[in-house]
Write a protein that binds this DNA or RNA. Structure first.
Ligand code: SF4
Ligand code: SF4
Lengths: 146, 146
DNA sequence: GTTTAATCAGATAATTTAATCTGATTAAGA
DNA sequence: TCTTAATCAGATTAAATTATCTGATTAAAC
């Protein structure tokens, strides 16, 4: 079970964070990402392909090809990645699954959940990839050790 | 796509809130719940069966049977329902899907997400079914109109 | 040019989750 | 007692998500 993002989105975020933690515009193979993050190779490759269409990463074919960020890490917000993969639906839907989420027809948790939802959204909008570089490196290093 | 709970859990919460909004220990058929909340009948029935095992609702067989709350609404917290259906895994797992969520090996969002997660957990622990009665009734009434 | 190592594209498989179906059991009420 | 209307139990189906496979294409390096 995932927390709020789909597996695709989780992997996408991980991969993009990984790319951001490398030197500028360094091309990285799907194979390396897969091994370092322990994500199925073909799966992460597919996800990065879709992020290519969204203009978040670049792909380079052929020998010594791979993926790299399409913009500077400080220009990529977490919400951009989430929007590209899962969409922003969860920030508009009812936690309880009731139809028609809106202030006019609120579900019983409207007041309390609304605040949390906004906080989560703001967090993802505030954070850019560069801000998370050091922490990403630390986490990745720890993953390799296990 | 659901927000954080599975469909099962969403429906379970809706159904239990619906029961709580009725008079004390009134027995309600799966059919009525299904119609009022627009949830597939057999599905909600199955979910309530499992909540019976968890001791949250009672079921009464035979003609004029149905489901009712096993405790007073003020004794049932939302988190109890969530724990019974989805479990508490999401409050222990990494939002980004990284392995081993812990303060010792935090993911890049640890600091910020940790706070939101705790807030969400606390909300579900604070809220009991009785507190949401009025709002539930209002929402249910609006659903029937559509 | 040939080889090699990478992505790309699209089909397919496996798994999980959601929903439905069927027959049995139960108990109220005529 | 008999009929009826409900849950129960478990199998089955359907849909969505996750993961893998295969062949083609591309471009670097020799
Ligand atoms: S609580 Fe209100 S705003 Fe929040 S999801 Fe439910 S209906 Fe929408
Ligand atoms: S942010 Fe830290 S605490 Fe929160 S889920 Fe990720 S690893 Fe766990």
């Amino acid at each position: 079970m995932t927390v709020i993002f789909s597996k695709k989105c989780e992997y996408g975020l991980q991969a993009v964070l990984y790319l951001a933690a490398k030197e500028d515009s360094e091309v990285t193979s799907a194979d390396e990402i897969s091994k370092k993050l322990k994500i199925p190779r073909e799966f992460v490759s597919k996800i990065l392909q879709s992020l290519t269409e969204s203009g978040i990463v670049n792909s380079k074919k052929g020998k010594s090809g791979g993926f790299s960020l399409a913009k500077k890490p400080e220009k990529i917000r977490l919400i951009d990645v989430v929007a590209a993969i899962d969409g922003l639906e969860i920030f508009k839907s009812c936690v309880l699954g009731f139809p028609q989420c809106s202030p006019e027809h609120p579900c019983p948790l409207h007041d309390k959940w609304g605040v949390l939802r906004t906080n989560a959204y703001n967090m993802l909008t505030d954070e850019t990839l560069d801000m998370l570089k050091d922490k990403t490196l630390k986490k990745v290093r720890h993953i390799s050790k296990t």
